[in-house]
Amino acid sequence: MRQYKEIVILLVEDNPDDVEITKRAFKKARIKNRMYVARDGQDALDFLYRKGEYTGESKAPRPDLILLDINLPRVTGTDVLQKLKTDPNFKRIPVTMLTVSNRDEDIIRSYDLGVNSYITKPVAFDKFVEAIKSYHFYWTVITKLPPKETQLSL
């Protein structure tokens, strides 16, 4: 199997079970990754802006990809999305909604706010692994992303 470089992923998910399932899916898909987990929207923003417990780059590196749940306590997923996509420093990081909701309203609102893709979590684990594989392959192999330097200089 071809070796891909390690990617940094920020997973914003409040349900520890779901965190566990997602981590296991990445493992099963054999994706080399460093996964950081934020437990709600506020936690995610603190991580990205390196506030509170996340001071310093070592504690909170800039993620390559963000996986965002919608139904989150305190600050919701769509609020986080809105904040990221209006901030010049973060708007180029691919954000993917990872949620159980397949409501048209949620999907439309997310794309209106500039989400890069929207995945509904399959209930069956094997299907979820397939989805994660495709996700990783798409964003790290197929897609050409803007260079990091440019992002930082802005």
Binding site: N15, D17, D18, I21, R24, V100, S101, R103, K121, V123, A124, F125, D126, F128
Partner: peptide, 21 residues
């Protein structure tokens, strides 16, 4: 109905996944 069915899916996902694990 809609919200309940959605909310039911999440724990269900846990049951399916963890029993598989």
């Amino acid at each position: 109905t809609y919200i309940v069915s959605h909310d039911l899916k999440e724990p269900l996902r846990g049951i399916t996944s963890f029993s598989q694990f």
